[in-house]
């Protein structure tokens, strides 16, 4: 009972956070495309090559990647071999899911810790053509890994309470009339 409450609370939190991530990531795709187009236009048409466009585009791509990472985790879109899950009994499948999610959590835990250290060291390194330190770029990693950990906590709870990925995904499908920000 308590577990279910925790799970639904976490789901609401995750949906809220991830919908912010959604709008951030799609905006980043649009802006990075515009920035690179601007680079071409300024160089070729106006004969005035901009120094900052390439670097800005790269950093936006990095942010886009790590901010979309938890969404990809939530939707189970990572590339994986999964012949075992088709061979196993339902009960063993829950167990396998829990093992896999736990392994991922371990990776994410160290990734979070080390990327945070990495980001704080980046505070002393200046970007080449932008007036920022690399801290502001590296920060995308701990944020992305942190959000992904929240996601996997929910997935583990799902597996414990007996919700298999297929049904989960079905629940995540957009419902007719559902507010846009609630769809992932």
């Amino acid at each position: 009972m308590g577990l279910n409450l925790l799970r639904s609370g976490l789901r609401r939190l995750n949906l809220g956070l991830l919908s912010v991530a959604k709008y951030l990531s799609l905006t980043l795709v649009a802006v990075m495309t515009l920035v690179i187009l601007l680079q071409v236009v300024c160089r070729y048409v106006f004969n005035d090559a901009l120094a900052w466009t390439e670097e800005a585009g790269r950093y936006m791509m990095v942010w886009m990647t790590f901010i979309a990472l938890p969404i990809v985790c939530y939707k189970g879109q990572h590339a994986a071999l999964d012949f075992f899950s088709h061979l196993l009994w339902r009960r063993t499948r829950y167990l396998l899911e829990i093992v896999l999610y736990t392994l991922i959590m371990v990776v994410l835990f160290f990734a979070l810790e080390k990327s945070w250290l990495f980001a704080s060291k980046g505070a002393r390194i200046f970007a080449t053509s932008l007036p920022i330190t690399k801290y502001w770029v590296y920060l995308s990693m701990p944020i992305g890994f942190g959000l992904s950990m929240l996601v996997y906590v929910e997935l583990i709870l799902d597996a414990i309470t007996g919700l298999l990925p297929e049904r989960r995904q079905a629940q995540l499908q957009a419902q007719p009339g559902q507010a846009l920000w609630k769809q992932l």
Binding site: R43, N47, A49, A51, E55, T128
Partner: peptide, 27 residues
């Protein structure tokens, strides 16, 4: 008027600019 590739470093770009060229930072 020439497009001259420089590394993405302000001082290198400044040199080409001062001679009237277009400094072009390309990887």
């Amino acid at each position: 008027g020439m497009k001259i590739r420089t590394i993405n470093s302000p001082i290198q770009m400044e040199l080409v600019k001062n001679m009237g060229g277009t400094p072009t930072p390309i990887g």
